[in-house]
Design a protein around this nucleic acid. Sequence first.
DNA 1: AGGTAATCGAGACGGTACGTCCGGTCTTAGA
DNA 2: TCTAAGACCGGACGTACCGTCTCGATTACCT
Lengths: 199, 199, 199, 199
Amino acid sequence: MPSPSGPDPTRRSERSRRAILTAAVELLGETGYNELTIEAIAARAGVGKQTIYRWWSGKGAVILDALSDAALAVDASMPDTGDIRTDLYAIIRPTVAELADPRLSATSRALSIETLSDEALAEQVRDRLLRPQLDAVKDRLRAAQLADQVRADVDLDQAVELLFGPMYYRWMFRTGPLSQEYADDVVDLALAAFGIARA
Amino acid sequence: MPSPSGPDPTRRSERSRRAILTAAVELLGETGYNELTIEAIAARAGVGKQTIYRWWSGKGAVILDALSDAALAVDASMPDTGDIRTDLYAIIRPTVAELADPRLSATSRALSIETLSDEALAEQVRDRLLRPQLDAVKDRLRAAQLADQVRADVDLDQAVELLFGPMYYRWMFRTGPLSQEYADDVVDLALAAFGIARA
Amino acid sequence: MPSPSGPDPTRRSERSRRAILTAAVELLGETGYNELTIEAIAARAGVGKQTIYRWWSGKGAVILDALSDAALAVDASMPDTGDIRTDLYAIIRPTVAELADPRLSATSRALSIETLSDEALAEQVRDRLLRPQLDAVKDRLRAAQLADQVRADVDLDQAVELLFGPMYYRWMFRTGPLSQEYADDVVDLALAAFGIARA
Amino acid sequence: MPSPSGPDPTRRSERSRRAILTAAVELLGETGYNELTIEAIAARAGVGKQTIYRWWSGKGAVILDALSDAALAVDASMPDTGDIRTDLYAIIRPTVAELADPRLSATSRALSIETLSDEALAEQVRDRLLRPQLDAVKDRLRAAQLADQVRADVDLDQAVELLFGPMYYRWMFRTGPLSQEYADDVVDLALAAFGIARA
DNA sequence: AGGTAATCGAGACGGTACGTCCGGTCTTAGA
DNA sequence: TCTAAGACCGGACGTACCGTCTCGATTACCT
């Protein structure tokens, strides 16, 4: 039985793969999403266009892979100091800081655009990029729930979205500054919703 | 001071303007954002491309105008039954419903993409489309604050983003269903954050 | 019986007419045929486009009028010194000189292009610009025929074309220099054909 | 020395090249020069516009190539029966016939227009299309000169233009019919100029 | 002298083609 | 077989002009 068989991954050039992902991220930072084209990526990476199309479905998939690689590099786990507020500060602050930086958030912006255009990609983004972080926060909140720091009737899926949603909203629609104070305020507000009075 | 001049708005064809905005919205609903091209809009509207470029900077601006027109048509004010929870349900439920409908949310999707690609447009979207609604909700919350239904120390800008943020996050990243129950839960969670116990 | 009546020529602005013809000739000299557009003529002349279309059928007609004006200014008659060779030199030399000058011949070039594209215009060009000169030369040749300086069996229509044809051919196809010597040689060759031995 | 490079001719699609040249000639015959557009050629040939622009500078260059191809196919040589008049009849008659046919002369008309608009193209037309024929006639005249059928002092470059010039003049300016009699008369007149009495 | 009809400058309009850019596929040569 | 390179077909881009049309504002005639 001959397999339907796309390209053979064992023969894939790791060198090209890295060059493509690097080129994509660089171009995003340097010139922005509208100038990010497959041709530009291929040229910058010193790679044929076909090599991109052979392994990715489009530029959204390339960016997703680039960020997946980066995400794997950092620790996806949550700290647990015992104090849920402290731990949430620790996770939200750097996220806000990244979104506040136009250069660093260029990839997020690009991926959001692709996500809004492509349903299949959206699911990949959710499962491969967002889920790990959301689950880590959820786990931490569950622990807090067991420690009676979070009301028992709080739906934890909604809880994590209550933390990340306002932040992304403000980022997307530029309704206000993405400062550290803002990050802390969001955490405080969310914790109030979870039944924790401010310290 | 030499005026920048540009085309003379008094000679603008209202007929063409309406045809273009209508065509843009129709096409978005029928074929989606990636297939929405200036050429298609012009063809559908029975208009020369130049007539679009003369008055708008690109398709983002066209969509923005189309939605601004539509937004002006509907009442941007909030209900005020005296009960803040009831009133928030009334505003959040239809918003969630609209986002849940692929056809109705096509324009939101398109505008979000443009917003993420174009800083100048983002500000227009914020000021002309979002602000009126956000301000209306904010006003309603301020009244609730005066009626001691919302804690006095709650920052109202953050408050409205706490309501809308999670909803848009779930819409963009498809992290869960956009049901009426969800809409109500978001309101309940936010009200808890604002210091209102569940009924 | 109401006349079909186009525009009323008595109300025509002579000022605009001259400005248009002048602008057309200037533009031809400065930028060449490909840049000669109705819009450019109108802008240069400080005239509305409609004023051009009201009085001319297109740019070919404008150029034709411009040259007709110029042609009327110069004397269309032939000299008659009694010596046909001398007289032909006198008529051919300046014609060659004009064709040799890129600036002066820009209008001829433009008109030739229009002539090749538009049959109706071609007839106008022939009758209003060429015919007078051709007829003048023909008349002079007829006189020479009577004076036995030209063979009686020479068809005079062919004779004049034998004089002008080679010149225009060389001008169009750049097969050789358009010098005064060349002009004289053409005359000599033609006269040989007409039965006149070189002096 | 950095090579100017441009596209690699070894990878050029012969299929597309032929389709483009064929389409151009067909369209010229069917619709005329003003309706001959790059877009129409591309559409008819089933080719992307870029494929035309990659290899040609514009429609003039395409037509030139199309005719060069056709010219190579026919024999560019002159007959030599020993009698120069007979041989010139043989070459001039079909040329006049072609110019007299609106369909067949469409390409000549188009090329003449381009020649008048574009100096660089004019030289190509002269060297690649006209020269071979002019040279062939010139060679034949030279042989006639050696055989004392043409006066020794006749400049052969001028001689060939004396043959072709009047014909093109009459074609361009429509000063008379392009019949076979006319063709013969031109030859007879030219031969008289060359010192050959009519038979 | 005032009314009125046509021309005028200006430029927006519906269109068509331009020449460029890029998407995604296919072909070639080399490793 | 995969790769770099890049030609290919297709199609949208944003621009330039086309020829028509709609505006006041002159302008010249005609009561």
